[in-house]
């Protein structure tokens, strides 16, 4: 390595330094920050970055999981284990009235189901605890409307996003001023790509939920689409699950998360598979395909 190379950061080192800067800014400027922990790979990377940002002090804010009641059991176990291992306080919020009323994506449509179990639960949870800054693991490369989201995403009193009226963000200066009742969502991983996240997990040896790794799992097979059997009500009349070597590319609610056929049972194999991938990671999530621009509509209403 040349002398010059020794003082040039790699892309992952740069992204890490930027994310840590953001985490420290928010924790220092907001009275009531919280980290939304969704258990997925992005959230798990964000949690590691939070450990790094405040080391050797503990993470100075709690974790909040919005539980729809449809999360895979492996996810819930992993969540509890991770929170304990990093020594962070874990809060769980569920829209209990909607869950008790039997809300599910078959009875309603996915849009209304998400609206109640995710968006409404999130807004209620943030309100309940009085959080005014919430970290999320969203990345700009995930979806077109996310590409324009600021790192500090300002939300009005109803938790809604106005894409036409965003604050300019220059250099690394973030405007943290809000009026009472307003809040921000913060995305420390804004500039990370899916590949960066996997590379970082590999490089840092970060544990992730087993569901990301391929193994023989029972699935309802509908052409190219594999549906996990966790929620039996997704089954059609007479439909029988088959054992398929498969994995999840992104973790959502079990009724709406399709699996993919895969032999990738190690991290390098997952990354190799990703490099050959032709479909973006959200292609297997049913929710984004409801209608053109559906993510933007959800976000305007308060979805992450």
């Amino acid at each position: 390595m040349s002398a010059a190379a020794a003082t040039t950061l790699t892309h992952l080192e740069l992204l890490e330094a930027e994310s840590i800067h953001i985490l420290r800014e928010v924790a220092s400027e907001f009275e009531r920050p919280v980290m939304l922990y969704s258990i997925g790979k992005d959230s798990t990377v964000m949690l590691r970055l939070a450990q790094k940002a405040f080391y050797p002090a503990p993470i100075p804010f709690p974790l909040l999981h919005i539980d729809t009641g449809f999360k895979f059991r492996e996810m819930i176990d992993f969540r509890d284990k991770m929170a304990a291992s990093v020594g962070a306080e874990l809060l769980v919020w569920r829209n209990e009235p909607a869950i008790a009323a039997g809300t599910n994506p078959i009875a309603l449509d996915t849009k209304r189901c998400c609206g109640l179990l995710k968006t409404q639960a999130l807004l209620d949870g943030l309100n309940h605890y009085g959080f005014n800054a919430a970290f999320g693991g969203a990345r700009r490369d995930e979806e077109k409307s996310r590409a324009k989201e600021r790192i500090y995403s300002f939300r009005d009193k109803a938790g809604q996003w106005d894409p036409k009226n965003q604050r300019p963000e220059l250099w690394n200066l973030y405007n943290s001023r809000i009026h009472p009742g307003e809040s921000i969502r913060v995305f420390p991983l804004s500039n990370w790509t899916e590949m960066d996240v996997w590379q970082y997990i590999y490089q840092e040896n970060i544990p992730i939920v087993d569901l990301y790794y391929a193994k023989e799992r029972p699935m309802y097979v509908r052409g190219e689409t594999l549906l996990p059997i966790e929620q039996s009500f997704v089954a059609r009349l007479g439909e029988k699950p088959q054992m398929v070597k498969s994995r999840l590319r992104s973790l959502g609610c079990s009724p709406c998360t399709g699996a993919i056929r895969s032999d990738a049972d190690t991290l390098p194999k997952i990354i190799a598979e990703l490099m050959g991938f032709k479909e973006s990671e959200r292609a297997n999530r049913v929710i984004d395909h409801d209608q053109e621009g559906s993510m933007e509509l959800k976000k305007r209403e308060g979805y992450f």
């Binding site: 892309h11 590409a147 324009k148 036409k164």
Partner: peptide, 27 residues
Amino acid sequence: TDGLRAEREQGITIDVAYRYFSTERRK
């Protein structure tokens, strides 16, 4: 790259959109 609905309607780019790509040389 033209992401937002308002832009699709107006046919112009109204905000900063961030995009990511990489080559063998750099990101």
